[in-house]
Amino acid sequence: MIESVFDILLCALIVGVALAAVLGPRLFSSVVFFIVYGLFLSVAWTHLGAFDVALAEAAIGAGLTGVLLVAAVSRLDRLGVKEPAPAPPVARVTSALAAGGLSGALVLALWSLDPDGTGLAPVVEANLHASGVRNPVTAVLLNFRAYDTLIESVVLLVALVGVWSIADERHWGGEPGLRQHARPDGVLATFGRLLPPLGLLVGVYIVWTGTDDPGGAFQGGTILAAVWLLLAMAGLSDAPAITRRRLRLAVIAGPGVFLAVAAAGAVGGGFLVLPTEYAKPLIQEIEAGLALSIAATLALLVLGPPQRGPR
């Protein structure tokens, strides 16, 4: 009983914060509500027992997306962009009816599901021993459905190419984002010195522990990206020019290692087949490469297209 009171309170909070994020009158407060929304969702995932998703939601959904949106609001402010006029009442009413109808249809669909359906959990459980890892989510991500993850790592790369290609022609080959300055004794600069060692430790630990416990390349890589962003935003370490070879290597390391392992599998049993006895070291190798690439790519995506240089 107490359990479901907590569930309902948390869900009410999530819905309330989502409404504030979508309907809020001021853009900046909408963004802040969106970040709070991500943190509440992370609590929800923890409560559901989906710890891997909770970590990813907190780091990616609330954290990096939040940084991206806050930065976008301040850029729009500086450009002097005004809010467009609100939609006419007729459009608001019809849109509310359409959206409500969609939610209703989804609830009906949920109701029509087989209540005793077991999903794919038993299949994963039965084959977990062959995956080389003990965390079933990592087994799905990097073994059973490794295709998804391989293609996703390429999607990240394509998004980065897309962001870079928006650069002004003058700045192609320059440094991403604007040069950041922070007061040397300010909060940002102080945290910029205090947090990175801790962030590095936590990030690498979460990548490493992902084979057996919640964590992995995505969650850990995102924390490493946050460390780099913090250093860049505190003005302690400027982002490198996008033409730097080391940067390019870091960005393609993950998909590269992944493809190499996948191709090596083709010699044994088939593309992306990991032999059980080598599965764990191979997965750790892929995760190490992916964590590096995810950290670099996500940080570069948040920093945006080159806007300075090249010198």
């Binding site: 891997d52 990616i60 959904g61 989510v137 799905v140 998804d148």
Partner: peptide, 18 residues
């Protein structure tokens, strides 16, 4: 919870950020 949706959601979160 079922690990397959969890894995797909983590993939989805990263793609949504991109």
């Amino acid at each position: 919870p079922d690990p397959v949706p969890q894995a797909l959601i983590i993939t989805g979160l990263v793609v949504a950020l991109a």
